[in-house]
């Protein structure tokens, strides 16, 4: 495994080939905010909160650090005027869906996001995919998945599998940033697999 040297927030860091920027930063104790990241799961790149600025041979671009591989000689800025501004907008957009999510409220404070900047569309789920991916990758029970697409995308339980697996598992419950998962579970259960 070859070593990769680059800079994050003015600090020289060494990482191994194949790591992501987020991995490297976390290994060095440099904080980058995340929502859809989970150490046990494959990188997903859904929430975009972990966006950072990368300077490569004089060119600056914005990348999503949880899915961007480390690279020799780049200069990474986890906070800058631009990163902060964009992160603020991402938080505001997510808050249109999940206005009361504790993690979002906290981030909103940090980045000065205005919770009701965008018209409310409380679908509550922010499509972080933590529940779906945890069920597929870690517990490998595949009790719930995404259905539909775009603005209609939502999580959906497969009743037969959920009835059998979920009551004794529920490991995904604490992962949901918005509590929508718990609500969706109760709803699906009462409709399609009521237990006495």
């Amino acid at each position: 495994m070859s070593e990769i040297q680059f800079e994050i927030d003015g600090q020289q860091v060494t990482a191994t080939d194949g790591m992501t920027l987020l991995d490297a930063a976390q290994a060095e104790g440099i904080y980058i905010p995340t929502l859809c990241h989970h150490e046990k799961l494959e990188p997903f790149g859904a929430c975009r909160i972990c966006i950072v600025e990368v300077e490569d041979r004089g060119w600056t671009k914005l990348v999503v650090s949880c899915v961007y591989p480390v690279q020799n000689g780049i200069i990474v800025r986890t906070r800058s005027e631009k990163v902060d501004r964009i992160r603020k907008t991402i938080i505001e957009l997510l808050m249109a869906h999940a206005p009361d999510a504790p993690q979002l409220l906290e981030m909103a404070k940090e980045y000065g996001a205005v919770p009701d900047r965008y018209e409310k569309d409380p679908s509550f789920c922010i499509h972080c995919g933590l529940c779906v991916r945890y069920c597929a990758e870690v517990t490998q029970k595949h009790a719930l998945g995404f259905v539909d697409r775009g603005i209609n995308k939502e999580i959906s339980f497969v009743p037969e599998v959920a009835a059998k697996e979920c009551p004794d598992c529920k490991e995904c419950f604490p992962l949901c940033p918005t509590s929508y998962l718990q609500a969706a579970y109760v709803y699906a259960q009462s409709l399609s697999f009521p237990t006495a």
Partner: peptide, 12 residues
């Protein structure tokens, strides 16, 4: 293939 995956494709 898990039914969740098929369900996702069928609705996509």
């Amino acid at each position: 293939v898990p039914l969740t995956r098929i369900q996702h494709i069928a609705t996509f």
